[in-house]
Design a protein around this nucleic acid. Structure first.
Length: 275
DNA sequence: CGCCAGGACGCCC
DNA sequence: GGGCGTCATGGC
């Protein structure tokens, strides 16, 4: 599964070659909500961040990318992990493709990767996601970050908020859940770092102690924020996939990477069938 | 306008 | 334990 990375340093930029990555597919497929796409004169560029570290990255051509104004150290320490570059996705997809539906999904959008995101940001983001649509989720998270100076607020910054004081988010009934998550996290009652290494069922139980965290949100935090690739979030879209293509159950041989497979299916069912 | 959205909670049986 | 109404908000 380990894969060597192919990159070169070019001034203050890093040029990365990774055939199994596509920015549109990876950064805009419902796993992360804070990457902004900008079209400059010659290229399309994404700007986003991991915790306090910002990044501008553009796709120069198929499988070739420029990480702007960064360093080799930051690339190796932060972005290689964030984009999961040390995992061999060609190997993963080869396995997935033994299944007919997954084979189509991987062929349709082969540049999807599972981002290794921050657990706290995932927790709040997916609390916001419940019974909500992606454009509006992005709007709420934008307003949250904007209010805290353009960065995602830490739990400690949110403990003084109340559902009333968060009304500017227009998050509706979800605001009280954000407050509970912040209080529990800041007080140490919930410790995401230690939850991340629990057995998957213990981790689920711990996460669901937070108000507004049910099976789906817990699964998203595990998958996107803790890189527990066996976690398998089932929303209305994946429910349709399961009913239509997997009436006998999801393939057992994929279970340890079911969450990654789910990501290809989610994108496939939502976009391909509308074309 | 009505239906839906990367759901969870509270209550009922 | 499963079924169902409710919860804000706004995208489409």
């Amino acid at each position: 599964m380990y894969k060597a990375m192919d990159y070169e340093i070019k001034g203050k930029d890093i040029i990365l070659s990774e055939p199994e990555l596509d920015l549109d597919e990876t950064l805009d497929c419902g796993q992360a909500f804070r990457w902004k796409k900008v079209w400059s004169e010659y290229q399309c560029t994404y700007t986003g961040s991991f915790v306090n570290e910002g990044l501008t990255i553009s796709q120069l051509s198929r499988g070739v990318f420029r990480l702007h104004d960064t360093s080799e150290e930051k690339f190796l320490d932060i972005w290689a992990d964030y984009f999961d570059l040390r995992t061999d996705y060609s190997e993963l997809k080869k396995k997935f493709s033994e299944d007919e539906t997954l084979s189509k999904a991987c062929k349709y959008a082969g540049g999807i990767r599972l981002l290794r995101q921050n657990a706290w940001e995932c927790l709040i983001s997916f609390i916001i996601s419940q019974n909500n649509n992606i454009p509006r989720i992005k709007g709420i998270i934008d307003r949250l970050c904007e209010h805290y100076g353009g960065v995602f607020p830490e739990a400690e910054q949110l403990i003084s908020e109340t559902p009333d004081s968060l009304s500017f988010l227009r998050a509706g009934f979800r605001s009280k859940y954000i407050c509970d998550a912040a209080f529990r996290t800041a007080s140490g009652d919930t410790d995401l770092k230690s939850i991340a290494v629990l057995s998957i069922d213990e981790a689920r139980t711990e996460l669901k102690k937070i108000k507004g965290v049910g099976p789906k949100v817990a699964e998203c935090v595990l998958l996107y924020g803790m890189h527990r690739t066996e976690a398998f979030p089932v929303d209305v879209w994946i429910k349709r996939v399961l009913e239509e293509y997997y009436p006998g159950g999801f393939p057992e041989y994929i279970s340890e990477n079911a969450g990654i497979a789910q990501q290809y299916l989610f994108h496939y069912i939502r976009t391909c069938r509308n074309e």
